[in-house]
Design a protein around this nucleic acid. Sequence first.
DNA 1: TATGAATGAGCTTTCATTCAT
DNA 2: TATGAATGAAAGCTCATTCAT
Lengths: 192, 192, 192, 192
Amino acid sequence: MNGKKGTWKFIPTKEKISIVALKLFSRKGFKGTTIKDIAKKVGITEGAIYRHFTNKEEIINYLITRISEELRTLIETKVLPCKGIREQVSRLVELLVNYAFDNPDAFRFLTVYHILRHNNNSIQLPGSILINLFRKAYRKGDIKVSPEVALSLIIGSVERLFILWELNIIDLPRKQLVEELKSATLKALFGC
Amino acid sequence: MNGKKGTWKFIPTKEKISIVALKLFSRKGFKGTTIKDIAKKVGITEGAIYRHFTNKEEIINYLITRISEELRTLIETKVLPCKGIREQVSRLVELLVNYAFDNPDAFRFLTVYHILRHNNNSIQLPGSILINLFRKAYRKGDIKVSPEVALSLIIGSVERLFILWELNIIDLPRKQLVEELKSATLKALFGC
Amino acid sequence: MNGKKGTWKFIPTKEKISIVALKLFSRKGFKGTTIKDIAKKVGITEGAIYRHFTNKEEIINYLITRISEELRTLIETKVLPCKGIREQVSRLVELLVNYAFDNPDAFRFLTVYHILRHNNNSIQLPGSILINLFRKAYRKGDIKVSPEVALSLIIGSVERLFILWELNIIDLPRKQLVEELKSATLKALFGC
Amino acid sequence: MNGKKGTWKFIPTKEKISIVALKLFSRKGFKGTTIKDIAKKVGITEGAIYRHFTNKEEIINYLITRISEELRTLIETKVLPCKGIREQVSRLVELLVNYAFDNPDAFRFLTVYHILRHNNNSIQLPGSILINLFRKAYRKGDIKVSPEVALSLIIGSVERLFILWELNIIDLPRKQLVEELKSATLKALFGC
DNA sequence: TATGAATGAGCTTTCATTCAT
DNA sequence: TATGAATGAAAGCTCATTCAT
């Protein structure tokens, strides 16, 4: 509607709903976002939403599944194939920062989902691949910190960095953020 | 009601409401928590809540103000007086982990508030003191990473570590977590 | 509280409640006035009201009874004893205007009661004496208009005049209003 | 539902709500009438009301605006064009009595609104046109009573006459009421 | 596919009333 | 007499969902 590109009107309705819902859910929470809110922003009526999703819950599941898969695929194709844990960590930080800054709604959605739904275990979140990665490295002695601490350090840092960025507290160029965070993380996990 | 200590019945109603509301808000979000939920858990009727708080919003403000102040005071008395930025960071990690694990509802509430209310700037959150701490250290050359990255690294790690702990993914003793996170953070900020 | 005289604090509580209730009921209606509103303005708590009146309804009945009697007594002592219907009408207009301007809350209350409660017939309102007065005069041929029209003319005029006065639409001195209304009414009922 | 005509079911919902709300507000006041009352009488659920009006206040505003305009238009087309103030007053009395008896709910609503809302000045009530009419006549010397007294006399009489009629105290034919009130008013304003 | 009216349950809040102190 | 905490019913309003068109 407002700041959207000219292609907006050619996007299929289901996709429009996903985009709008992602933005709203990630900012106002699940109960805090109403079907009416979504419909209004999409430019259709409430009833029309139900032509594309059977209910609100399904929208949420659709989003979390899609995002999880997307991020998992990225990790599997861009991080895991790298040689050596150092290189993997380096790429992971890079990937996460870039993903967060390129897909802010999706990244925020993941966080909201994590905090408000830490019960639903039917969906495999990206974190589970990473924890395995670090467990192996820990067992082999490649990193000295526990796998959970390693994971927390990386994901947590990016998450918080992203929040500060959204609050306009940070105005450093993205490249610098990636470099600093990468080097800090590497030092934290492997020493200097 | 369920797992509460024997002193529960002697706690004043307003305090009971705060305790229950903190737990529920931090787990189910603001819209996801109803006044009825709170009243039922406290053991009173919905109307009685309004003797103590004028509305739902006021409960939220009361909680965020109280927690922010508590944490700020802790930082001001336990972290800032330490000599040297290394010692300060060390104490900060310790403080945050302990606070999170001792006050899980309050810590979770802070995170939820941050994500779902990142517009309200009338309340001074604890983060603002810390960012100043790191800015000074950065200007003096005591740390090499940007202050925002430093802050993100510390707070983000603790936050995520705490989430994993609540999901029962971590079963390491708290002392070890503190030590590992402390050493990792120090390395990240100061090198080895 | 605000514009009240210094004697306010020496007035018995029941009387204070009556005064405040009269003002509020007459301005905001019966449902529009809450026990809390009354209590707050009196300077006591809600519970205390119930030491003086068994319930809200009783306050209303107490007020309408008291005002009706007061006005009836005034009519019986100041209007009925006059000789001749002309003199009686003259005195009636005078009495009503003065009563309205001296007891605005009471007069407004009567109107509100009339409009919002035109069902309750257990209380004898002042109008019923007057209607009898005009019926007799009509039968004797002393007035040419029907008794109901005569009554409507007098009471209605005063009522509306009073509303305009309260809205600050009228700024004529009271004496002039009385004189004008008196003369107009006399002409209306008796010709010139 | 009860005594309604056969066309009821073909009236659009918004109009049904207006009709029912007008009746209830004018009899029980604004706070004394609930959305549930209205919905029940219309034959829909409470929620459905909010498809047609955003809130209770809007229903009240819609009604007062509509009625004010209707009455103002009537005055402008049927009263003002008459030649001479005598003829105008004569037609005004006629118009008001007929309007009141043909639209009892609307007329009662106006009165209730006047008494319970004598603060809201955003809506131009019909009285303001009339006061101008009488002011001019007074300045020209066509009437001897102050404009406000003249207005009070006419509107007040009709209002009260109408109340007595609704209370079944009057059982005279309408024509006679109009004639008597007209002649009484003319005498009051212009002498015989 | 989409609309728009409607439902029904549930939400936040209000309020007359009660009661232990 | 008065307080203040509490109740319970009901108020205004919201919202996910349904359905005829």
